[in-house]
Every structure is written in structure tokens, then in C-alpha cells.
Design a binder for these strands. Structure first.
Length: 433
RNA sequence: GGAGAGAUGGCCGAGUGGCUUAAGGCGCAGGUUUGCUAAACCUGUGUAGGGGUAACUCUACCGAGGGUUCGAAUCCCUCUCUCUCCGCCA
């Protein structure tokens, strides 16, 4: 959520920054300002009435203490109607505030000044790359064929169990998936100094609001219902990413500066309804309703936010370097960035069987956008409280990493080599043949 | 699921309708005293939102939401969460 004071004091700046996203959000600013002004006007009125009521009530108390009940009764009669006026105004103010905040919650974050202005993914800027596309003496197969021939994923039975977009990993495939999760958690917790946490996989609605999935993208979430009790629907949601539970860990807390920076890493499955994406590249493992991911989260001071983002990128890139996978790094343009982010880098890994790059990581600084939504604050040694910066990054998403890995390391005989860094986790240097 | 006890500032903790402008303590900041440290003493110290160039001032907040009242931390109703015990359960 943006700071209402910023919108109030620099509406032109906010409009200009929102416009760079190309989604038309800047059109809502006038309505927000109008509601905000109305709210403040009413607030002035009701507070004056309340001040009067407080003063008179105190006088009545004094009269009672002086044993002057007649005078007290007279004052009571005078102020009897005040309560109704106050109640009516309070109600209008609450409605105005709800309307204002409803609009505010749907406004995306302002892009950082260093983010390139653009409309689509085509306008993203490649800032670096690592390694090279592997060369094959044969025609590389798709991961779908490799999974079937090696028995790594049973696509048909996954669909039988849960519908399309759900995967049943089997045999070496299941072991490889588990090994990758453990490899990633070990790397980030032991080498990169993130505190490992294991969060719940369902969260309350307010957590979804806190990290920005709700209210705007509510149709992308899976809602949970307890048994047949429909009244429980809408309270808990399957996590779309570990970012949601982990970034909310300190929601509504007042942190001490010496607690920062906080760095967490966490594994979770990620559940995404992918509404509106049916039939788009759904074959195989590239776009599914449930996938595994190891997520990185940081809570830091605003001064260090962007240095921490670069550090997080280095941590995520290290994954692909250790696995020997070619990748490129993109700085997302204003039009392609997520709702909550002020600046985002994507890491795309090369998948030879797809002849394309696949997004396996997205690292963002959301600045104070999320901490405002969850009322996460920090109390400095002196001065007023501030909202810390919240960063999140995939370290990394698994299904696509799995794809890139087996497509990159496939051999002519149909087997798949396991890179050395992963061998202790898979307990083998090769799958198949 | 059943029974009982609770929820008060950064923390602990008093407070059963109006001298509460939330006592007192801890912590924190400044000051006095002092060879240094410590201690003692004094002063200050919540959050959010309005108004004001400013000093300052007003309003709200005692788990959440309603209600009674001129006035609610305090009385009434509903809900949430925590703790203890019992039952069920991986």
C-alpha cells in the first residue's frame, strides 16, 4: 500500500510513476484524494463534537461530586443529542475510509527510478548472463519425453488424482525433487546465512492482503473449507508461495533496529489456480497448479534495501552456478513487474528441450509496500517509527529447475547425469541406463 | 468437542461508571552528584489520525466488534485468541 501522505502531497509524482506500469491505475488517484479530503473534513466536525462531549461530561461529573443533581440533569439534557450526531458522523467516516482503503489496496507499488519503462516482457533488459547454451551431438529431448522414458513423473496418474496441472513424481524423479529441496535449503541456510523456517502451508486472509495477493488477485488462490462447513470458506487459503507466510512472520510487530536485517529461507509447495491460463503451455511441468519452491525473504532498513536486493540476486544465481546451468538475468520493465514490487530481477535458466529460457527466480524489493499493509514497523533509537523494506526472491522454483536440469544433462543413451554438487543429495551420479 | 481461567503501553503490572490526563515498576533517553564504573536522585519517554509556520492543541486506542449512558479499561451481548484440565486423534 502506498503512503496516503505521499498521494496527498505529491499526486503528480504518484500518477506519473503509476502510469509507467501502463495499467491505468493513475486514474484512481483523483477518487482517492476526493474520499480522503471528505474523510478529513468529517473528522474535523466529529472531533469538535467529541471534544464538546468530553468537556461537558467532565463538568457533569464535577456537579455530581458537588451534590448538585439538578444542575447535572440540566447539562445532560443539553448534550443528549450529541451522541446521535457523533454516531452518524462516525458511521459516514468509517464508510468513507473503507472506500478509500479499498482503492488504495488495489493500487500497485511505484516502480523504482532505476527500473526501465516498458510495456511487456519484450521491454525487459538483460543485465547479465552466465555460462553458455550446451551443445548436443544429438537432438535433445523434451523433459516430458525424458520423464516418461525414465519414469520420473507419471503425468497421467497425476491428472487422475487431482486434475491437469498436478504432478505425481515417481522413483528417481521423486528423489531428485527431494534432493533439490534439501540442496537449496542447505545452500542458503549454511552458506548464505539465512535462517531456515518451515511455515504453515495455509494462511489467513489478512496474510494474503499483507503480501499483496489480495484483494486484487484473489481469483488465483485456492480457498480452504473445513469439511462441509461452508461458513469456514474464505478464512484460510493455500499458500501461493512461501513468501506469504514467511514475509508475514513479523506482521503487526514493532521491531528493534538491532533485529535487522532479518533473513529467512523456507521451502513450501506453491498452489496457484492459474485462472485464465488454461491451455497455455500447460504440457509438461512448466506451468502447473502445484510446485515446490525455496524462497528467500529479507526484512531490512530502507537504507540497505537495494544493496540487499543485489545480495539476494547473488544468492539465487549461486544455485544455477553450482548446478552448472546456463542462465540470463533480466531487469524487469515497469509494465512487466509484479503488483507489490518496486524493482524486480528475473533469472531465466536455459532449457535445451524447450529451446527457450524458463523463469526460475524472481527477486524483488517491495520497499515498504508490504510492511505498510501488514503494519510491520521498526522503532529507531531516536525519531519516528519507520516501515522496513521487505524483499523476496525465489531461491529457486523447482519444477522448472527440474526441467532445465534433466534437459541440460541428458545423454545420447537416454540417461541423465547428475552434477557433482547434487550427487550427495541424490546418492548417484546418473539416472537411468 | 466439554469445563474453567485469562487478554491493559516496548515489557511487567494495578485499576468494578466521573480526582484515570491509565497508578507503580522495568527498560530507554537526558540531567545532577561522582576519580572511573556502578549506585542514588530529578526530568522525560506509547501508537495512529486531524489542525497549526511553530510552541502547541484536539480526537481515537486497555484482544476485536456491537450495546447501555451525558460519560465505559470498568456494566451487557457477540466473536477471536491464549493458558489449564478432560475427551478424541497422527
Amino acid at each position: 500500500m502506498l503512503d496516503i501522505k505521499l498521494i496527498r502531497e505529491q499526486p503528480e509524482f504518484v500518477r506519473e510513476r503509476l502510469a509507467t506500469r501502463g495499467a491505468g491505475d493513475e486514474a484512481k488517484i483523483d477518487e482517492i484524494l476526493s474520499l480522503d479530503e471528505q474523510r478529513r473534513k468529517l473528522l474535523n466536525e466529529v472531533e469538535a463534537l467529541k471534544a464538546t462531549r468530553n468537556r461537558v461530561s467532565k463538568e457533569i461529573g464535577a456537579l455530581m461530586a458537588q451534590k448538585k443533581p439538578d444542575e447535572a440533569e440540566a447539562r445532560k439534557a443539553e448534550t443528549r443529542s450529541l451522541g446521535d450526531q457523533i454516531a452518524a458522523l462516525d458511521k459516514t467516516i468509517a464508510e468513507t475510509e473503507t472506500a478509500r482503503d479499498g482503492l488504495m489496496l488495489r493500487l500497485p507499488n511505484l516502480p523504482h527510478a532505476t527500473v526501465p519503462v516498458g510495456k511487456t516482457a519484450a521491454d525487459n533488459v538483460e543485465v547479465s548472463h552466465w555460462g553458455e547454451k550446451p551443445r548436443f551431438a544429438f537432438e535433445p529431448k523434451s523433459h516430458v519425453d525424458l520423464c516418461e522414458s525414465l519414469g520420473l513423473v507419471d503425468f497421467a496418474r497425476g491428472t487422475k488424482l487431482s486434475g491437469s496441472g498436478f504432478l505425481l513424481y515417481t522413483g528417481w524423479g521423486a528423489r531428485l525433487e527431494r534432493g533439490l529441496i534439501q540442496f537449496l535449503l542447505d545452500l542458503h541456510s549454511r552458506e548464505h546465512a539465512y535462517t531456515e523456517v518451515s511455515p504453515p502451508y495455509v494462511v489467513k486472509q489478512e496474510c494474503m492482503i499483507g503480501t499483496g495477493q489480495f484483494p486484487k488477485a484473489a481469483d488465483q488462490a485456492y480457498a480452504v473449507q473445513e469439511g462441509e462447513d461452508a461458513s469456514t470458506l474464505g478464512k484460510l487459503y493455500l499458500v501461493p508461495t512461501a513468501e506469504t507466510p514467511v514475509a508475514n512472520i513479523h506482521r503487526e510487530e514493532l521491531l528493534k533496529p538491532e533485529q535487522l536485517p532479518i533473513r529467512y529461507c523456507a521451502y513450501s509447495p506453491c498452489f496457484r489456480a492459474e485462472a485464465g491460463a488454461a491451455g497455455v503451455g500447460t504440457r509438461g511441468m512448466i506451468r502447473v497448479h502445484q510446485f515446490d519452491k525455496v524462497e528467500l525473504i529479507k526484512v531490512v532498513t530502507p537504507e540497505t534495501g537495494y544493496d540487499e536486493l543485489e545480495g539476494m540476486m547473488a544468492n539465487a544465481e549461486k544455485v544455477l552456478q553450482l548446478l552448472g546451468l546456463h542462465y540470463r538475468v533480466l531487469l524487469l520493465c515497469t509494465g512487466d513487474m509484479g503488483f507489490t514490487s518496486a524493482k524486480t530481477y528475473d533469472i531465466e535458466v536455459w532449457a535445451p528441450g524447450q529451446n527457450d529460457y524458463l523463469e526460475v527466480s524472481s527477486c524483488s524489493n517491495c520497499e515498504d509496500f508490504q510492511s505498510r499493509r501488514m503494519n510491520l514497523r521498526c522503532k529507531p533509537e531516536s525519531g519516528t517509527n519507520f516501515f522496513p523494506h521487505l524483499l523476496n526472491g525465489s531461491g529457486t522454483a523447482l519444477a522448472r529447475l527440474f526441467v532445465a536440469l534433466i534437459e541440460t544433462y541428458q545423454q545420447e543413451d537416454g540417461s541423465v547425469k547428475i552434477p557433482p554438487a547434487l550427487q550427495p543429495y541424490v546418492h548417484s551420479d546418473r539416472i537411468g541406463a
